[in-house]
């Protein structure tokens, strides 16, 4: 319990730091009052506006106000759309979340078993081939994979759509593309593109960790105990492999979520990435600030989830965290 509280405290600090950075964005890109008033505005008018916007207050007070509003989901108005930022972000969030979750499912669902398999069949030709291909997956830039997939499956074969999300269904505030045929078809290419690098990474990491674990003394002792091969490989080998692998999968999920920008651009996927690219081009600071805080929140949540997983699987953490244990 102390352990969980500690982690929550850390997450809170991380979010605060992210909020500070977003807050600073506003101050580094010029004076908003200059942007909002015309050339003709007098100094007095400007000062009046400054006071009305609360920009005359001490910086600390401004920051506190910013954080207080952010907690309530209020990041102000987009310069470009003239709409509340929170609404814009929430509208785009489902597209990006669905894309990142599906590609991480593909990457983990294939990468983990393949990693285990290549570790257990170290010498075989097929395993060597899988490893060689995975190296290509690591080396190829994501945008290239996306373009090649579009060329093959959309342009040449015409099987799958090359851009957009297809039809979506509104479930309360959530618009999902997972329930329609065209939504699912649209999801295939971008999610595969996004998954390739992660798949290769997870595969190679799992293989390396599994090989490491299979060399340990307790695996040798498990063999000396005459346990079945399956029990040694999975109950002892894989379980010990999972601890570091889950950490990386969690962090990579954060990366996929935060940096799906390239894939969203290539496939014109109406998600956060696209929104952010456009916000950068237009200097739409409130959107960028909100995005920054959201990404930080996402990483914080994932980190806590990974920690909870470790807590569940690895008894050594339970002790060091000060929780109960048979010491």
């Amino acid at each position: 319990m102390i352990f969980v509280l500690g982690r929550l405290g850390q997450a809170f600090l991380v979010l605060l730091a992210a909020a500070l950075v977003s807050f600073c964005l506003f101050r580094f890109v010029g004076d908003p009052v200059n942007n909002m008033t015309g050339q003709a505005a007098s100094l007095a008018e400007r000062e009046a506006m400054r006071a009305a916007l609360g920009l005359a207050d001490p910086v600390v007070l401004q920051f506190v106000r910013f954080v207080g509003k952010a907690v309530h989901g209020d990041f102000g108005m987009s310069y470009r759309f003239g709409q509340p930022v929170a609404g814009l972000v929430l509208e785009r969030l489902p597209a990006t979340l669905e894309l990142s979750v599906v590609s991480m499912l593909i990457a983990t669902g294939l990468g983990l078993p393949l990693g285990v398999w290549t570790a257990l069949h170290r010498g075989s030709r097929l395993a060597q081939a899988v490893l060689a291909v995975s190296l290509v997956g690591i080396a190829l830039p994501t945008f290239l994979i996306g373009i090649v997939l579009i060329l093959v499956f959309s342009v040449r074969l015409g099987w799958l759509p090359s851009f957009g999300r297809g039809d979506t269904i509104q479930l309360g505030p959530w618009s999902t593309g997972l329930l329609t045929g065209s939504g699912l078809r649209s999801l295939v290419l971008p999610s595969v593109t996004l998954a390739v690098f992660q798949l290769a990474l997870i595969l190679r990491l799992t293989r390396a960790e599994m090989l490491e674990v299979m060399r340990t003394d307790f695996i040798r002792f498990a063999r000396a105990r005459g346990l079945h091969r399956g029990a040694i490989q999975y109950r002892h080998g894989l379980r010990n492999t999972l601890v570091p692998v889950v950490t990386i999968v969690g962090l990579q999920f954060g990366n996929v979520f935060a940096f799906s920008i390239i894939v969203e651009t290539v496939f014109q996927w109406p998600g956060l990435g696209l929104l952010v690219i456009q916000a950068i081009q237009f200097g739409d600071i409130p959107v960028l600030a909100a995005y920054l805080v959201l990404v930080a929140l996402c990483f914080a949540v994932i980190n806590i989830a990974v920690d909870l997983f470790h807590l569940a699987i690895d008894p050594r953490i339970r002790i060091s965290g000060g929780a109960r244990g048979a010491a």
Partner: peptide, 30 residues
């Protein structure tokens, strides 16, 4: 035969046991 007729004890007890499994589980499993 291993573990049943011919058992083994290795040098380093710190690394001979699976760290993620209770002592009881490892005995019962064997």
């Amino acid at each position: 035969l291993r573990g049943k007729e011919i058992a083994a004890v290795f040098q380093d007890p710190l690394t001979s046991l699976d760290p993620l499994m209770t002592v009881g589980e490892q005995l019962v499993e064997t």
